[in-house]
Amino acid sequence: MILAKNLRPCFIIVFLVFYIYSSIPSTFFTADAHFDNFDSYNSGGMGIGNKYYVLQQLEPEYVKPNEPSKIMFSIQDKHGKDIHDVTVMVEIYSINGERVFMFPWTTLETGDFNIPFVFTKIGNYQIVLSILNEDLARNKILDTVPPPRTILNDSVNCNCERAVFNVSITETFGLISTLAIYGTILGAIIVLGTVIIWIFVSRRKNRSNPI
């Protein structure tokens, strides 16, 4: 009984330490090898076809209207290795289906690239990355501008693979999200400190008043 009573504070402290650790976003500890930091907001990753895996994120993570930003991509193979000599096209569509930007078919030396862009309005957008299949003659399609599509991932009449990513442009969400994260961490630290002080005071009382 005495041993269990002495170990109880230790279990409480260990639990609170794990709680604080789990409250900290994963981006505090990890980064994708192709990005300095892989953010949790306005980012995503998905497989395309049988060959590619694509990571996408915005920089900064919480983009405001009329703020310069970069749309970052990392095209890898299924094993996470770099892709070279790849032909891509990037489109941005607003929530109402209007195409607001287009980066025409271009051959890149590497699959890690970024495109500067300024979102002028608050709202949700869809970013479409198209990757040309290798068996197509590239010279015929380079710098061409295909018409907008209603079904964004539709590859009819295009010998290509497509991925669609969703991003959101807001004025205040970044601040609210950051405050919520740090508020959670601070709250957990306060609870841990309170428990440690309570354990310390309880032990001093027990020593002062032995049974």
Rank of each mutant, 00 (worst) to 15 (best):
Leu132His: 12
Val100Tyr: 06
Asp154Thr: 03
Met102Tyr: 09
Glu171Gln: 05
Glu134Val: 05
Asn124Phe: 04
Asn96Ile: 07
Pro116Ser: 00
Pro148Lys: 09
Val145Gln: 15
Glu91His: 04
Thr107Glu: 07
Glu91Lys: 10
Ser94His: 05
Gly111His: 09
Gly111Pro: 02
Leu129Thr: 04
Lys121Phe: 09
Asn96Ser: 10
Glu98Leu: 10
Ile83Val: 11
Asp154Phe: 09
Val128Glu: 11
Glu134Ile: 06
Ile131Thr: 10
Ile169Pro: 00
Lys121Arg: 10
Asn133Arg: 14
Asn114Val: 06
Glu171Gly: 02
Asn114Arg: 14
Asp82Ile: 14
Val90His: 04
Gly174Met: 05
Asp112Asn: 14
Asp85Cys: 08
Thr172His: 13
Leu129Asp: 01
Tyr125Thr: 05
Lys121Pro: 06
Ile122Lys: 12
Asn153Trp: 06
Asp82Met: 12
Asp112Leu: 12
Lys81Glu: 08
Ser94Val: 02
Thr144Glu: 11
Ser155Trp: 05
Glu98Tyr: 10
Thr87Pro: 05
Asp154Cys: 05
Leu175Pro: 00
Val164Lys: 00
Val90Ala: 03
Asp82Ser: 14
Pro147His: 10
Thr107Asp: 06
Ser94Cys: 02
Cys160Tyr: 06
Leu152Pro: 00
Asp143Gly: 06
Leu129Cys: 02
Ile122Ser: 12
Ser130Asn: 08
Ile92Thr: 01
